[in-house]
Design a protein around this nucleic acid. Sequence first.
DNA 1: TTGACAAATGACTAGTTGGTCAGTATTATA
DNA 2: TATAATACTGACCAACTAGTCATTTGTCAA
Lengths: 277, 277
Amino acid sequence: MAKKQLIMEKALELFAKQGFESTSVQQITEHCGISKGAFYLSFKSKDELILALIDHFMMQFLSEIDYVVRNTKNEKLLYEFFFTTFQSFHKHSDFAKLLMKEQAHTINEEFIHKMYDFNRMLDKVILTMIEHLYGERIRQTKYDLMYCIKGFIQTYSHLFVIYNVPLNLELLAHSLVEKTNVLAKHMTLPFISEDLHQIFTGPEYGRETKEQLIQKMEQLVEEVDDPIIKESLLLLKNELIYPSLSPAIVKGLQENIRQHPQCKWIPYLIDRYFKCL
Amino acid sequence: MAKKQLIMEKALELFAKQGFESTSVQQITEHCGISKGAFYLSFKSKDELILALIDHFMMQFLSEIDYVVRNTKNEKLLYEFFFTTFQSFHKHSDFAKLLMKEQAHTINEEFIHKMYDFNRMLDKVILTMIEHLYGERIRQTKYDLMYCIKGFIQTYSHLFVIYNVPLNLELLAHSLVEKTNVLAKHMTLPFISEDLHQIFTGPEYGRETKEQLIQKMEQLVEEVDDPIIKESLLLLKNELIYPSLSPAIVKGLQENIRQHPQCKWIPYLIDRYFKCL
DNA sequence: TTGACAAATGACTAGTTGGTCAGTATTATA
DNA sequence: TATAATACTGACCAACTAGTCATTTGTCAA
């Protein structure tokens, strides 16, 4: 199994430089000093390699952060969180680069799911940390605070991952601790409500089922007065059961109900349903 | 020249979905309903297409922001900045998606330079806005504040660009205004010093020269149909070579071409040219 | 109707890609 | 040493890629 690790290491170096898509299996095997056949003894496909990389480093990173968050006293918690995060990025800078490059890329269905899962887990870690630190005081603004923290991490890590400048990570962590505390103390206007956060993260993997979606639409048909929106909802509901309309018509119907404040979520849920299955 | 625009529009749709590298010229031409040869009549290469896309949308976006920052009273400035930014991302969400996907990708030397240039310009706009708003008070922390603002924009725009949820952009802008003000007022521990910022942005990369600007305007004269805009472009081009018109006339001509979606960033480039030299 | 010019086509090239597999080398067991 | 089992190789394949160019189609003035 040493071969598997060799391939992962060497491939990561190339992915960090060139990205996943622009790195060929040929290049990887040459960089490892092995033959093409040997590669396919360790990994069934190129996709399996990147999934293994994501799994390996992501779990390592997440568990490190999680350990720190669980085992640090409150006074040092925020500092240790930032410091560990950046140190981890620094230590595995090739992986951090890969993550930044492929952030939003549609490499593969499974890859996307893994990334979503990872994000959900990170969200949870940060949220519990925030709740632990500030308690009830930030109930209204905790989701905003979480997104701000993620913004800090992304923006600042971008700087030292892309430009290879040696940075004073202690100072960086201290500086971000202050920013976070300032926001937690004085922020009053939340943007991300509980509901909104639910929509972003989705109901834990198993999303809305078709039946739930149809039920919700039937309920809305009863509640809505506007005949156009009523009919659009009905047609879309039937489309879910027996797909028969052209994409343009479906898109148009979705646009219709997007106008109505009560229904505007429906097109999003429909899209998400089709994307997941 | 309508073909060029058709290709850009249709290609952008595919790039937003699949990314630049995974979209073939074949796919683009099929999506346009034209032949492969026709593509190469409009663009010398696939690389030239993405550079044209970047140029077109980036300049449009930057000039919009710049216009708002220059023409808004201080009390509403920050709000208008955030609101315009997000509205622009919303309007051109395909381009925003492309930008997120290809953020750190090594597509091409020229592409990277363009992205660096764009970032530098955005940095400058944000910095002047901050200086204008808070003056001497934030001299120490202004670079940190700028990176925080960019972090806010990135994190929150990610949410509504990736998940296609209709958001209340007014509320979002208000919320971010508060966050920014809170940070500006209470932040004391800077991380990004003047020197560090210099290192990140690097020495000014040869911005548009007069010749490039003139060339671009000549190209637009060919592509535009409206006679008023055509003449305005020609007069402004001559003004660049032999300054002879009064400031009021020049301003008026700039206002003319600002109306046209393809030309509206030209005034911004002209201003920048005169300011830098 | 003709002829001249521009616009558009798609079969073509030369090269790359992820992936396979018949065959060779290496090792472990007897 | 002989045999069986495993590890490895690299020529090969089909499918794709960006880009080209001889040929066809469309347009408009004479």
